[in-house]
């Protein structure tokens, strides 16, 4: 069976090409930085989607893996040397660390009922936050520390391109992952865990592996994030990061992979403009309140998120037009 290269694949290629060319055409520093930020949070949100959207695991502790990557990279660049090699090595170390820790946490806690698991992740990530605050010799606590990025990233555009490349690679990898036989079982676990078991799949294995993959990728996002700021403090381990990832995933569309990217774009842009507005109207200082409202509206009216809703509409239109059997392209609508 030859794979058809569909319209939306072309669309994706065009968008990626446009993003590659963008920094060479425009010299808006603000936009380069903003887009870089969007790429990084897209990676984080996609990793969260593996948990929430595909496996049906609600975690309130995802920030711990993001923070692990951020601190690993920051500490290694600061303490050893700010070179490209060290940057790559630190990403690897961060991922390894995140993988190991998510494996053990998963093994110990994913047996529990989902709400207990959610609470435990909250507790464990709280533990890491406290650890980072108290271990001042290494982290300088809440004050944080600055560090030098590798020479190569002096030019913001280079870092922009690296972040974009990471986004594309992670997207391609995760798409493979969720469409593989393994990924299909993840969805089955989300849908009906007991039934999955009676088919002879062990849900615990699937949940643990999913949480390892999500943790490892969140750590990559964290590493990139630290370098983008050339600074790290305990904020990378806070609930805010987890909530951002959650919000981006839900607004963009759970279980769609592209959705979290769209969600990251929407939320980062909104934050950018709202904090701009706040200079004139102090009420927008509290933009998080607006997000609260948007969040509630989204869950009530667009439970499928932006991408999910669009897909559903296209699908409905298609089935109406030719009146034939509906053939959903993705099993997960």
């Amino acid at each position: 069976m030859k794979r058809k290269f569909q319209l939306n694949h072309y669309l994706l290629v065009v968008i990626v090409l446009a993003l590659v060319i963008f920094p060479f055409v425009s010299d808006s520093r603000t936009w380069t930085i903003l887009l870089t930020q969007i790429f990084i949070f897209s990676i984080l949100a996609m990793s969260y989607d593996i948990l929430l959207g595909y496996t049906g695991i609600v975690s309130f502790g995802h920030a711990m893996f993001f923070g692990m990557g951020a601190y690993t990279t920051a500490v290694m660049l600061k303490r050893i040397e700010p070179t490209m090699g060290m940057f790559i090595l630190s990403i690897g170390v961060g991922m390894l660390l995140a993988g190991l820790i998510s494996f053990f946490i998963g093994l110990l806690t994913l047996r529990l009922k989902s709400h207990f698991f959610a609470m435990l992740t909250l507790a464990v990530s709280g533990l890491f936050l406290v650890l980072a605050e108290k271990w001042r010799t290494l982290t300088q606590g809440n004050d944080g520390f600055t560090f030098k990025a590798p020479e190569f990233f002096k030019d913001r555009v280079m870092f922009y391109l690296v972040a974009l490349a990471c986004l594309v690679l992670v997207y391609l990898f995760l798409r493979r992952f969720v469409n593989s036989p393994f990924g299909r079982v993840l969805v089955a676990v989300r849908e009906n865990e007991q039934r999955t078991r009676s088919l002879g799949f062990n849900p615990l294995h699937y949940k643990v592996i999913a949480s390892v993959v999500a943790g490892v990728i969140a750590s990559l996002a964290g590493s990139l994030y630290a370098v983008s700021l050339r600074f790290v403090n305990t904020s990378v381990l806070t609930m805010d990061i987890t909530l951002d990832a959650l919000l981006m995933t839900i607004i963009g569309g759970v279980g769609t992979l592209i959705g979290p990217i769209v969600g990251a774009g929407v939320i980062e842009l909104a934050q950018h403009y709202l904090s701009g507005l706040a200079k004139e109207y102090p009420i927008f200082e509290r933009w998080i309140i607006f997000f609260g409202i948007v969040y509630i509206l989204a869950v009530v009216f667009f439970p499928r998120g932006i991408v999910g809703t669009v897909r559903e509409q296209i699908w409905k239109r298609k089935t109406k037009k030719d009146g034939s059997k509906p053939v959903p392209k993705k099993e997960v609508l």
Binding site: M1, N179, S180, P181, F182, L199, F201, H205
Partner: peptide
């Protein structure tokens, strides 16, 4: 298909697209 997949013991394959297992 999921049930058939279990019978064929394809449990941890993470790379190929599931629809390519014709």
């Amino acid at each position: 298909r999921l049930a058939v997949q279990s019978k064929e013991k394809i449990r941890y394959k993470m790379y190929r697209h599931s629809m390519h297992y014709t």
